[in-house]
Measured scan of single mutants.
Amino acid sequence: TKIIYHMDEEETPYLVKLPVAPERVTLADFKNVLSNRPVHAYKFFFKSMDQDFGVVKEEIFDDNAKLPCFNGRVVSWL
């Protein structure tokens, strides 16, 4: 699974690849690859589809939650 993530106000996003199927990747999986960053200091928002509003940034805080996936990749903002 490819996860593209944006940090603070930085213009260029980062990319990490996880050896987990897109439909199975969790917030804990993502946090594990960010071990060099203080993950407890961040809120995690993900590109998600809402039936009422369309594409939104959804906050996910449960480490066991599966991450929303679009075209085989996850897009996140920290």
Results as ranks from 00 to 15, higher is better:
Lys2Met: 10
Lys2Tyr: 10
Ile3Phe: 02
Ile4Ala: 02
Ile4Lys: 06
Ile4Gly: 02
Tyr5Ser: 01
Tyr5Ala: 01
Tyr5Gln: 01
His6Gln: 04
Met7Ser: 04
Met7Gly: 02
Met7Lys: 05
Glu9Arg: 10
Glu10Pro: 02
Glu10Gly: 08
Glu10Arg: 08
Glu11Ala: 12
Thr12Phe: 12
Thr12Tyr: 05
Pro13Glu: 15
Tyr14Asn: 15
Leu15Gln: 15
Lys17Met: 14
Lys17His: 12
Leu18Arg: 04
Leu18Met: 04
Leu18Asp: 01
Pro19Leu: 07
Val20Leu: 10
Ala21Tyr: 05
Pro22Trp: 02
Glu23Leu: 04
Arg24Ala: 13
Arg24Gln: 08
Val25Phe: 01
Ala28Glu: 05
Phe30Val: 00
Phe30Leu: 13
Val33Asn: 02
Leu34Pro: 03
Leu34Ile: 14
Ser35Thr: 14
Asn36Leu: 13
Val39Lys: 06
His40Leu: 08
His40Tyr: 06
Ala41Tyr: 12
Ala41Asn: 12
Ala41Cys: 13
Ala41Lys: 09
Tyr42Phe: 07
Tyr42Trp: 05
Lys43Glu: 03
Phe44Trp: 03
Phe44Tyr: 08
Phe45His: 03
Phe45Asp: 01
Phe46Asn: 01
Phe46Gly: 02
Lys47Arg: 10
Lys47Leu: 06
Lys47Met: 10
Ser48Tyr: 12
Ser48Pro: 02
Met49Val: 12
Asp50His: 15
Asp52Glu: 10
Phe53Glu: 15
Gly54Thr: 15
Gly54Trp: 02
Val55Asn: 08
Val56Asp: 11
Val56Leu: 10
Val56Ile: 13
Lys57Glu: 14
Lys57Cys: 15
Phe61His: 07
Phe61Pro: 06
Asp62Phe: 06
Asp62Cys: 15
Asp62Pro: 00
Asp63Glu: 14
Asp63Cys: 09
Lys66His: 10
Leu67Phe: 00
Cys69Asp: 05
Cys69Met: 15
Phe70Met: 07
Asn71Ser: 07
Asn71Gln: 11
Gly72His: 04
Gly72Tyr: 02
Arg73Glu: 15
Arg73Ser: 14
Arg73Ala: 13
Val74Ala: 09
Val75Asn: 04
Trp77Met: 00
Trp77Arg: 03
Trp77Gly: 03
Leu78Phe: 09
